[in-house]
Design a protein around this nucleic acid. Structure first.
Lengths: 152, 152
DNA sequence: ATTATTTTATTATTTAATTAGAATAAAAAT
DNA sequence: ATTTTTATTCTAATTAAATAATAAAATAAT
C-alpha cells in the first residue's frame, strides 16, 4: 500500500496512544473526523495495524525478572524445529521466541517474578522440552529502551 | 495493589484487545458496565496499565528485517554506560535495548528494511557511538512467538 | 478536456464512555 | 456484637465518540 506522510504520522500517533479520539487525531493532522476515520479503517483492512492492546508495567504484576535465553537444538531436522516451536509457544513465561542465525538457534525472552521462579521454570518447563541441546541465560539488569512503536 | 481473579482476567482481555467495549467486558466478566469501568480506571491509576497502543505488522512497513545486536563497551565506568544509553535511545532503528549480565553489556533489537539498510545503520549510526568495544549481530530468520501480553 | 475513482467534508444516527446517586458488602473501630 | 467507615457494585441518565449516509472536492486515467 502507498502511504503518504499523513498515514505515517497517524500510525506514529496510534502507536503511542491508541485511545486518541478521531477528533483529536483530526485536529493534529488538520483533517476532518471522517478523513481520519477512513484512513484508520484502511490501515486496519490492509493489515498494517494488526491490533490494539493494553501494555502493562511488568514490575507491578510480579514479572519484573527478565531473562534472555539463547537455545541450541541437538539437531536441525525440520521436525525437531517444529516440535520445539510448538512446545515453546505454550510456555506462558516465554513472551517472545525468535528463530535466529548464528551460534544459537533461538532467542527467548522470559518474564517471571524472580530468580527462584526462573529456576523453577528452567527445571520444570524449559529443559524438559524435546531436542534441546544447550541453553544460555542472560539476565536483564536494566531497561534502556523498550518500545513497540516503529518510527516511519 | 491486591488484584483478584476478575482484575487478572480483565487485564488479560485488555492485553489481547484494548478496543473491547466495557459492555463486552462486563458481559464476559459477569459484572455491570460501571464495575468494569471503575476497575479499569483503578488499574490505570495504579500504573498497572501503562498505555494503550496500536501494533503494526513490521512486514507491511518496510521493517521486516530484525537483528539482535549484542554489544560490549570498552569500559564500564558509569559515565560510559550513561552516554551510550542516552545515544542509543535516540536511534529510531533500535526498538529495544536492555542492559544485561554476561558476555555482553547490551542486547539491542533493531528493525530495518533489509540487509542493506542494516549495513547502512551499522556503519553510519551504531558503530559511530562512543565507548563501543564490540558488536555481534544475530539475524532473525523466523518469528515463533512475539507477544506483549503477560499471562496472569 | 472529460470521465472515473478516490478522498474528504457535512450532517445524521447509532453506540459507547462517563457521571450521579443509591444500594450492597466488606473492613475497621467502638 | 454493633456501629461507622470505606470500597465496590448496581441502575439510570448524561455526555461524548464512533459509525453511516450523502454530497462535494480532488486526483488519476482515458
Amino acid at each position: 500500500m502507498i502511504m503518504d506522510s499523513t498515514d505515517k504520522k497517524l500510525l506514529e500517533l496510534l502507536q503511542k496512544d491508541a485511545k486518541m479520539t478521531t477528533k483529536a487525531l483530526a485536529l493534529t493532522l488538520n483533517l476532518s473526523v471522517t478523513a481520519v476515520y477512513e484512513r484508520i479503517k484502511k490501515l486496519e483492512r490492509e493489515g498494517i495495524i494488526t491490533k490494539y492492546v493494553a501494555l502493562l508495567n511488568r514490575n507491578t504484576i510480579q514479572k519484573g525478572f527478565v531473562v534472555f535465553c539463547h537455545i541450541k537444538l541437538i539437531q536441525h531436522a525440520k521436525e525437531y524445529l517444529t516440535t520445539f516451536e510448538r512446545e515453546v509457544g505454550k510456555l506462558t513465561e516465554v513472551l517472545e521466541c525468535f528463530h535466529v542465525s548464528g551460534d544459537y538457534d533461538y532467542i527467548l525472552k522470559i518474564c517471571v517474578k524472580d530468580m527462584e521462579a526462573y529456576r523453577e521454570f528452567m527445571v520444570t518447563k524449559l529443559t524438559t522440552l524435546q531436542h534441546i541441546g544447550s541453553t544460555h541465560s542472560t539476565f536483564m539488569i536494566g531497561e534502556v529502551k523498550n518500545s513497540t512503536a516503529f518510527v516511519l
